[in-house]
Design a protein around this nucleic acid. Structure first.
Lengths: 345, 345
DNA sequence: GGAAACAAGGAAAACGATTGCCGACAAGCT
DNA sequence: AGCTTGTCGGCAATCGTTTTCCTTGTTTCC
């Protein structure tokens, strides 16, 4: 990169091609009726000047900017990224660019971003964040459609796409039951956290449907490995009998796994483990690798973006949409098949 | 959110306030000479219509969009996020919004994004990515300034801001030396990875300056915990005598830590550990918590954004800029102070 | 009382692109 | 020859805002 040249305008292109501005525009956009020779001449001129139409000027006319805003309420992190990527995928196909705004849990900052995005005339807004708890809408009667992804809006008329966490928890329990476990404990994050409560309730309910109850009341704590380790200490000290643990996050599961091993319990032979999030960093390096529930965040982001696009085109889908979770089985719940030592010949 | 209304234009505001369009503009921007009463009337009208000036139309006039593009060459992840946040911080102060584009390691995609950003008339572009290796420039003679953050451009005239990884490695070694260790090993990522080579070379060099050589040749492998554990196996099997390990990433260090403990070696009493990245997920949950090198990515992002702003304002800072790393000490290198059991009265 | 200075706000020309309308010209038909 | 038809491109309005120039009144000062 050496020096900076001015952006070429369509007037420059027209002059170079020896036509009027209007004709140049038509030539480049395939409109009007022009001789093929003229069209080529204009295109060549545009290429020479590396002309790119000014999107701002263009949208002045079309009323659309082919731009959407994405506001992350809390700091952008492990959960917003896949959502963002999925959204980018879906939007990129429509040649739509994304303004990324990091709200950092500050309502003032958030409102500032909403105003900024509106002044930039985005075609729509996606709101996302870390907590799945319903949150107050970012505004009322906004002139553009809004979709909440991962988190959901407290206004039931808003369009929210959120993971079906209860469904995910049920799948975890079903899997443990299917592998023959029945004395199941649940270790999860802080009780004031919506996800922790929802998952715990769903797990308990699913067990009840089988006529079972948890081997211990749900253990609420933090989302960390440290808490996972502590929880095992509590269970062992209380002489709780359990043959499986469903954990509220992979980090917790990892901590549980390490603590069990340190206490001489084998995973999965003595205790089977299911985590939540399917975060490769944890699932792959745990010993053994962890079975986990995947919220399919990229798919969720894509779905949210598609709903936003539909809304932009006049077909909104108001209401709350649950996005299914998926079970990913690894060795923490299934005894690895040992390779056949002497295959039958 | 109920219904969608049209965006108000300044003409609407002017009509409501009973003035001309030009006057309304002046009133809202504090230009021209107007009676205070008039100014208030216009402002009130704008408020009533929740008018936000159309940024596209405005930039048509000013030639600036107060917008920059950020292209992540590989997939957006753990390293790009802090850089992004730092950049957003620095740019947000100037009321500049960010277009986020995920290149996904695809040159075609990348070029497409460059064109898109140029057509949106961004004031500048930040390029970032996972690898610190020099990469080909995203374009030549672009009409806007470009700054490379974290990664650097192969063109020495481009402005690149990258972490001083060699300096970081030296700090790690110095810290280990200062805590009385002398038989130090280095376990790091794949040799084809620039960061791994740079850090290994710097560590070896720093040891040489003290007349020491590594307790074993650098062990190149992967960036994972699994590799950290394997590496310990290799060292122990080879009966290597070592009292400290400097690891190329916190994940490796975590794996090393777990494997050492499993083998009955105490950290830090028998072996001191230093990681790299200062990634809280790893450093906090390792037993004991890990001393690590922090690349200060948020500061790097901020610095890159500031350089971009300067370039936009006509003062470019071409060349390669090294951003210092920082040592963060935790218990994996220092024996924790036990709290005083009976304070002297 | 008249000229000059000044305050207040309107009219219109940008900015860059798109598009509907119209004019010029050539060819085809009666 | 005169009319219609069709092709090719130019003209000018438009989008929303800012800004430069003007035109009004009103005040001030000699």
């Amino acid at each position: 990169m050496r020096k900076l040249e001015r952006h070429a305008t369509i007037a420059d292109v027209a002059a170079l091609a020896g036509v009027s501005v209007g004709t140049a525009s038509k030539a480049l956009n395939g409109r009007g009726s022009l001789r093929e020779e003229t069209r080529m001449r204009v295109r060549e001129a545009a290429r020479q000047l590396s002309f790119e139409a000014n999107a701002g000027a263009r949208s002045l006319h079309s009323g659309r900017t082919y731009t959407v805003g994405m506001i992350t309420t809390d700091t952008i992190g492990r959960f917003s990224i896949p959502v963002l990527m999925g959204a980018e995928d879906a939007l990129g196909a429509g040649e739509i660019s994304i303004f990324l705004c990091d709200g950092r849990d500050d309502p003032i900052r958030e409102q500032y971003y909403v105003k900024t995005l509106l002044s930039r005339r985005v075609d729509g807004i996606i709101v996302t964040g870390r907590r799945t708890e319903a949150r107050p809408p970012i505004g009322r009667d906004l002139p553009v459609p809004v979709v909440y992804a991962f988190i959901s809006s407290a206004d039931p008329d808003d369009c929210s796409v959120a993971p079906d966490e209860a469904g995910g928890a049920r799948k975890a329990i079903e899997h443990l039951l299917a592998t023959g476990r029945s004395r199941i404990v649940h270790i999860t994050g802080p009780e004031h956290h919506n996800s922790a409560r929802v998952r715990a309730a769903a797990a308990t309910e699913r067990l009840a449907e089988e006529g079972l109850s948890p081997a211990a009341p749900p253990l609420f704590g933090g989302w960390s490995e440290v808490w996972g380790r502590q929880a095992v200490g509590i269970l062992l000290a209380g002489r709780t009998e359990f043959d499986a643990a469903f954990c509220g996050s992979d980090q917790i599961a990892r901590g549980v796994c390490d603590a069990l091993r340190a206490a001489g319990r084998r995973v999965p032979e003595d205790v089977a483990l299911v985590g939540f999030d399917n975060w490769d960093v944890m699932t792959e390096s745990a010993q053994p690798p962890l079975t986990s529930i995947d919220m399919n965040l990229e798919g969720l982001g894509r779905s949210a973006a598609e709903k936003l696009l539909a809304a932009i085109n006049g077909s909104p889908s108001p209401g709350h949409h649950a996005h299914p979770c998926q079970l990913v089985v690894r060795e923490s719940t299934t005894v690895a098949l040992s390779p056949p030592t002497s295959p039958a010949v």
